[in-house]
């Protein structure tokens, strides 16, 4: 009888939100994967990113040329020169080698601040959102102060004060990305906390930590994570931007932003080579953006 009743219920029920019925039981994540599998743009972008990351990591295996080796006689060779397929830079270093090796620092400087901010900002935001009240007030008003700076300005201010260097730029960018991550985390957590299933969990006598672990995190990490993947694109641009200003890594390290900076003097001699590092930044950034969009619609997250 119960089954018959259940079937009857299904048909006779126009009420209630999201009466999406499926024959087979599928978890949320398997449905997300299913949607992603049918999204060529996201898949392509993910593929390109994997390629860029792998080639940066395994650079020595891919490219025999030394990215530091200068050559006074082979400076600013054009694209397509024998031995230097993408030409050479202003000190005669091979561009392919530098572009591939350059990914190491650029990707590190682009992703690490977002990962840091995800951890710190996420923790702050979820705490503020879950606890509410005075704790929320204290955390969020402090965040507001940092949020009151345009991000480029804050990044330059902090790394300008700290001085140039890889670590300093990572610290500066981390500080830049904590406020937006914290804000999104707080907003998402606050909205989830108000839902009845959290109340029901409290009503079952669970302690705060258990509720956060079982009921809050599972519902907020997705949106926060998606937001962060979108930030990586900004972070890559900003990180290379800092190097472009001379605030990031120092020569002779290969890094896309720094390479743009040093090659800038050579645009009158060899404009195509000078623009190459920027294409890498652009490619990485647009792939992260498109992938973030794809994930967002597959996970059905509204931010």
């Amino acid at each position: 009888m119960a089954d018959a009743a259940a079937n009857f219920v299904r048909i006779a029920e126009p009420l209630g939100p999201a009466t999406e019925l499926s024959v087979k039981s599928r978890s949320y994540w398997s449905s997300v994967l299913g949607k992603l599998r049918r999204d060529p743009v996201t898949l392509t972008c993910a593929g390109i990113l994997v390629l860029i990351f792998l080639s940066a990591i395994f650079a020595p295996l891919i490219i025999p040329a030394d990215p530091y080796k200068t050559s006074m006689i082979r400076r600013l060779q054009a694209v397509g020169s024998p031995g230097n397929l993408l030409g050479t830079d202003e000190l005669g270093r091979d561009m392919i080698a530098r572009l591939i090796y350059g990914g190491r620092l650029s990707l590190l400087m682009g992703t690490l601040p977002v990962i840091n901010a995800l951890l710190i900002g996420g923790l702050l935001g979820v705490t503020a959102g879950f606890l509410g009240g005075r704790v929320n007030m204290l955390i969020m008003r402090t965040i507001d102060v940092f949020y009151a700076f345009p991000s480029v300005l804050l990044a330059i201010a902090i790394s300008g004060a700290l001085g140039a260097g890889l670590m300093n730029s990572i610290v500066a960018l981390t500080i830049v990305f904590i406020p937006p991550v914290a804000r999104v985390s707080e907003a998402v957590t606050t909205s989830v906390r108000g839902l009845d299933f959290v109340e029901a969990a409290r009503a079952s006598g669970a302690r705060s930590w258990t509720i956060i672990r079982v009921h809050i995190l599972g519902n907020v990490l997705g949106p926060i994570f998606i937001y962060a993947t979108g930030l990586i694109s900004v972070s890559i641009i900003l990180a290379s931007g800092l190097s472009f200003l001379g605030l990031g890594v120092k020569p002779p390290e290969p890094e896309w932003g720094l390479m743009l900076n040093t090659l800038r003097q050579s645009i009158w001699v060899n404009p195509v080579v000078a623009a190459l590092p920027g294409t890498m930044i652009f490619l990485t950034s647009i792939c992260f953006n498109l992938m973030s969009d794809g994930l967002r619609s597959a996970m059905d997250v509204k931010l």
Partner: peptide
């Protein structure tokens, strides 16, 4: 609200078992 009072990320078995697990 029957929808809002169940965690959308948990299979219903886990939602029901949550209380006893807590205790």
């Amino acid at each position: 609200d029957s929808y809002a009072s169940l965690n959308p990320r948990l299979p219903i078995e886990e939602s029901i078992a949550f209380g006893p697990r807590v205790h």
